[in-house]
Computed example of a mutant assay.
Amino acid sequence: MIVIEQATKKIGRNTVLKDVNLNFKEGTIYGLRGRNGAGKTMLLRAIAGLIKLDSGRILVNNQQIRKEISFPKSLGILIENNNVLPDFTLKKNLQLLAKIKKIATDEMIDDAILRVGFNPNDKRKVRQFSLGMKQRAAIAQAIFEKPDLILLDEPTNAIDVEGVREMRKIFELEKKRGASIILASHNPEDLNVLADEIIVMAEGRVVNEK
């Protein structure tokens, strides 16, 4: 369970989040809708612990982000530019990450790679991938540890039509597994197809929930 209370953040003179109050529960996909600069990415970054609020708080399983914990303990994330290391294979990327938390087995790594449409034995380095392939790789990175919380910012960018359908199936399966998924997208079809609840943001505020 994620609880956001009066979350406010300023960057310079701009208020990028203003008095945001939201609750997110497990096994649910939430869609964030809004124009560029509406606050969608900043909200994801705040939940991930990547930015510190000026006021208000974010609780994940009753632990406050940036106070009791630095970031959610079970988190998969794809925000803005993916951070898959270009000079390694996708499998090596996931193996390096797996050493940090020591959660994912080799079988879990191979399964995530297969799910996004790659061969686990592919020897190509990520820098050789197309933009759509890099996006798939970033999705594999977000899901391979089977996290409780998955944050996705424009996850289907640069992916072809068939690939988008495949990625949506992955997100649906992660939801069925019990994960909470918060997804920001400019693609209205992504939100209409996937989201159980849609949250509309404008100028750092939540202006509508449905």
Rank of each mutant, 00 (worst) to 15 (best):
K125N: 13
Y30I: 00
F118Y: 03
L97K: 04
D110P: 05
R35Y: 09
P120D: 08
G117P: 08
D106I: 03
N157R: 10
P147E: 07
Y30C: 02
E107Y: 14
R66T: 15
R136M: 09
E68G: 14
D87E: 10
P155V: 01
A158E: 15
S74N: 11
I150L: 10
Q95F: 01
N157D: 12
G37E: 06
A137N: 11
N81G: 08
P72D: 07
Q141N: 14
G56V: 01
P120S: 04
G34R: 05
I139E: 12
L94C: 01
D54I: 07
S70T: 14
L43Y: 12
R127C: 12
K92Q: 14
L149P: 07
I113W: 02
T156K: 10
V126C: 12
S55H: 10
A142G: 02
G37S: 06
Q128C: 08
F118T: 01
I29F: 01
P120C: 09
P86I: 00
L90S: 05
F118V: 02
E145N: 15
K99Y: 04
F71K: 10
I109S: 07
Q63S: 14
L78A: 00
I139G: 12
F129T: 10
I79C: 01
D87C: 07
N82Q: 09
P155D: 04
N82V: 03
L131F: 07
R57S: 11
Q64F: 05
R35M: 03
G76P: 09
D54V: 03
A46D: 02
N36E: 08
R33T: 00
F144L: 00
K92Y: 14
P120E: 05
K146N: 15
G56P: 06
R45D: 02
L75P: 11
Q64M: 14
P147F: 06
T28G: 07
Q63F: 13
Q64V: 12
L96C: 04
I69W: 13
I79H: 04
R66F: 12
N61E: 14
I47C: 09
S55E: 14
T89H: 11
D111E: 13
G39V: 11
E154D: 13
A48H: 09
L44F: 10
N83K: 12
L78Q: 05
E145T: 14
I69T: 05
L53I: 10
F129A: 11
T156V: 13
N93M: 05
Q63A: 09
K67A: 05
L32Q: 02
S130Q: 11
Q141I: 02
A46V: 00
L32D: 01
K101E: 13
R66E: 15
D111V: 00
